[in-house]
Write a protein that binds this DNA or RNA. Structure first.
Lengths: 227, 227
DNA sequence: ATGCTAGCATACATACGTGTATGTATGTGC
DNA sequence: GCACATACATACACGTATGTATGCTAGCAT
């Protein structure tokens, strides 16, 4: 049972098996995420992924069943981070418009890391295919669109979002414009944040000034933009 | 062309060499364009391209030097069409804002064909690489951005576009949002046109009502040659 | 220490796609 | 009609990337 070393040591002592495993898996995941974001799925070379993580393909195939499994793990990982850093903070906004603008700004900030294009790249690559990876990205995308549709509906009922095209079309356009803008804006920090919000505001048909007026999020607590 | 032999071929007589060549080349180009739009470059299988055009890879390699050459020809072809159907009509607009909104609407309509994503897909796939195809797509993209920068500058001087982030950042965001929105809006005719214009208006920071008010473009010409 | 298993590297089998070489039939100039 | 070029198909050679089988080393329990 309680043998001398459990997972308590993490500095430079002899690492335990579980630690090694977690460390390797993390490094491989991160490397794969960068690779997927840069090259997409089929252009991703597993030997390169392993090498950039400091291993060989042997380690990779020890941790992941195959290329699909690796990609799915990356997607899940990225999505979890996105939810925590973008989705949940935005959900704490007081009204639909603020939440949508918060999503825009948050996504822009989130995508400043090189992991940015993972989901969009994969969604584009597998569009119309019947591949597990494609299905998963589609599922994530669809969840975002659905969330957006709900926000648009309640916003329209409240009168803060003007009427217009069907909510689903608006939501789809919103995410498309957001992802496209953010990807194109790679390296244009700090303007990416404002411009992403402007694009979203425009699609919604609301005054784009609102986008600029929206308080900077992800910095401090909430604040109420007047109603 | 005087020999009296006329084999009963469709509407035409025995096709001449040049005709055959042009016909094959056209079919292959169109098939490749669809394929590139759907699968991107490296996922594009030349045997499938040839088969969908009614040929084999032999015909393809007879008309094009290699895969790069084919892709470059497709890009040039698509870009020419884009210029004729989107770029030039927009250039006839009376002021920068109208021209930018015309670009948005025109691009949306242009991309209703399945050729839509060729440029964006390739640009994403080759981003950061040093590949001839990547360079060409980058060149086209850059030309569009430059054009956009000029329009933004003159619009700001005229006071029709409000100040904001550096023109280049705005232009980049504009094109990114436009392409992203239009791609996402595949199958959402006819709302794609308005929503694309809205996204662009939003990025520019102008009242998105302008986008709706802009008269419908690209309608005055002829419609489908159905009869 | 010793057996066992996990982490990882190396070597091999295989599939797939490109490019090229070669063959065949159909137009074209003489 | 004949020589030749052109349009296209078929067959092969090659590189590359995945997945798997095998071997080595280090942790961990007995």
């Amino acid at each position: 049972m309680s043998s001398g070393k459990v997972s308590t040591l993490s500095a430079h002592e002899r690492p335990t098996q579980a630690e090694r495993r977690a460390r390797s898996r993390g490094a491989l995941l991160e490397s794969a995420a960068r690779g997927l974001s840069r090259y997409g799925y089929s252009n991703l070379v597993l030997e390169e992924v392993a090498r950039e993580a400091g291993y060989t393909r042997g380690a990779l195939y020890h941790q992941f069943k195959d290329k699909d499994d690796l990609a799915l793990a990356v997607i899940e990982w990225v999505n979890e981070n996105w939810m925590r850093e973008v989705g949940e903070p935005a959900a704490r906004q007081p009204n639909p418009v603020a939440e949508l603008l918060a999503l825009a700004r948050g996504h822009a900030v989130f995508c400043r890391r090189d992991i940015a294009r993972v989901v969009m790249a994969l969604r584009l690559e597998f569009a119309g295919q019947d591949h597990p990876v494609g299905r998963e990205t589609e599922r994530i995308w669809e969840a975002g669109v659905k969330r957006c549709v709900r926000l648009i509906n309640t916003g329209r009922k409240a009168g803060t979002i003007p009427p217009g095209p069907p909510p689903r079309a608006v939501a789809v356009a919103l995410f498309g414009a957001l992802e496209g803008a953010v990807i194109a804006l790679t390296g244009h920090t700090p303007h990416d944040e404002l411009l992403a919000a402007r694009a979203v505001a425009g699609v919604l048909g609301i005054d784009s000034h609102r986008a600029a007026e929206t308080p900077r999020l992800y910095r401090s607590g909430r604040s109420e933009p007047g109603g």
